[in-house]
Nucleic acid binder design. Structure first.
Lengths: 239, 239
DNA sequence: CCCTCCCTGTGACGTTCATCACTCGAAGGC
DNA sequence: GCCTTCGAGTGATGAACGTCACAGGGAGGG
């Protein structure tokens, strides 16, 4: 039976076969059963806005499959992509826990399955299940460390080439696929969006990528990027 | 009786009179009693290194009084000050929870009292006291949100003046003191360190501050900065 | 099939800021 | 006392990158 958007929908958390790999979901059977009872499963098309920066927190979203970009914008209309969230991540947890406005916006980049949990349900879930609380703390710690990496990249990079090299290497670590001709990356983002990830302009991204191509560091085929020389990229970054 | 460094030392968490104001420490009496039993109180002079980026996590530090800067460095020797921690903050929690290396270094900016908790003690403390775990989650959420603000500032600011204006306004919100001639800030940092906070060079900081002085936006008296025109600063930032 | 829209690519130009090089003043040690 | 060290202030210079402007190509819709 075809499911919407060709997604492999998992309605039941208890029987979920990828649960063990997910830092947040990998909790006691008892806790997962409760989770199952309070969650709302939803399928979202590409481009869905889950929540918007500044909004009061309604609850958390658990990203079961698909990807979502987290963004923050200035009044001048400039946008910064803070992070691309991967399956297993929890979105909106910090705002929900503190009861403060969402600090970023979240938008799906591809058709995605999300489990939503209402704020009150989530908070009482945490206070009644210690290990859910522990896993939340772990999830938050991971998010904090990834934010920290982002800060390093934005603040310590000398040049824009360095930031872009760093981004490509980051991607290759999380989503890279080894092939005979180098590491293959599937890039869902336009140059404009890449620019928003590293705080620069579209033109500069285009120029630097051309430069990388000329120097045989990368090769671009449609939405694939092959890293021909990971070494060269690593040579560009400080740490 | 004089205490070292003229610090008001609080040895006993249960009787601590500022406990209620501290997001992390404000937990149940039962939990605080346990905390008291596993903590090690220490007084650190200015410039003490609590932990270093990359080190395996030994445990967490609760900042009772004083201030500490959190930094990250590149191999090229460039340093970025990620945050100046205030009393009540917990340092090293994310690394300790995940068992991953500290992602930043921590160094005291003034004589400070810290409570240290060993990793194993902290982890079992969290699993046995739900509300300690909740307060840790809140603390982590706060840190995550402040990291997010830092990312915004680094990534969305168009100019260095904007970043500096943002920094001054941030300080005025947390440490500002109203006076007839404007908001007074006590700046513990050198121009070099301010530069490291906003990812620029010392010379640029000096130049921009001079410029602000010329335009009667600020006035500098020793280590005090008076914000004469908060409005002008606000006019420089996008949001 | 053509038209439009969006993404990519590229040139010219100007501004901002990092870098280097130096001076000056204040603090602190011997 | 003097000398050293560290932070602040300032000028000259060049490179990096943002901005504007426009061209080409591919996808999708009427």
């Amino acid at each position: 039976m075809p499911t919407p958007y060709n997604l492999d929908v998992r309605n039941n958390c208890v029987e979920c076969n990828v649960r063990a790999e997910r830092i947040f979901c990998n909790m006691s059977d008892d806790a997962v059963a409760t989770l199952d009872a309070i969650k709302f499963t939803g399928i979202y098309p590409k481009g869905s806005l889950l929540f918007v920066e500044g909004e009061d927190p309604r609850g958390i979203f658990i990203l079961c499959s698909g990807r979502a970009k987290l963004t923050t914008s200035s009044t001048e209309g400039k946008t910064l992509i803070v992070k691309v969230a991967e399956p297993g991540e929890v979105l909106g947890a910090s705002a929900t826990i503190l009861g403060k406005p969402y600090e970023v916006s979240a938008e799906t980049l591809e058709p995605s399955q999300m489990n939503f949990i209402k704020r009150d349900d989530f908070l009482s879930f945490l206070t009644t299940h210690v290990d859910a609380c522990m896993h939340t703390a772990q999830q938050l710690s991971t998010k904090y460390q990834s934010a920290q990496r982002e800060i390093r990249s934005l603040g310590l990079s000398q040049t824009t080439s360095e930031k872009l090299a760093r981004l490509l290497l980051d991607w290759s670590a999380t989503n890279g696929e080894e092939t005979p001709k180098g590491i293959r990356l599937v890039v869902l983002l336009t140059h404009e969006e890449i620019a928003q990830m590293i705080g620069t302009t579209r033109e500069t991204v285009t120029r630097i990528l051309s430069d990388f191509k000329k120097r045989n560091i990368i090769e671009v085929k449609g939405s694939n990027i092959f890293l021909l020389s990971k070494k060269s990229l690593e040579g560009m970054i400080s740490t």
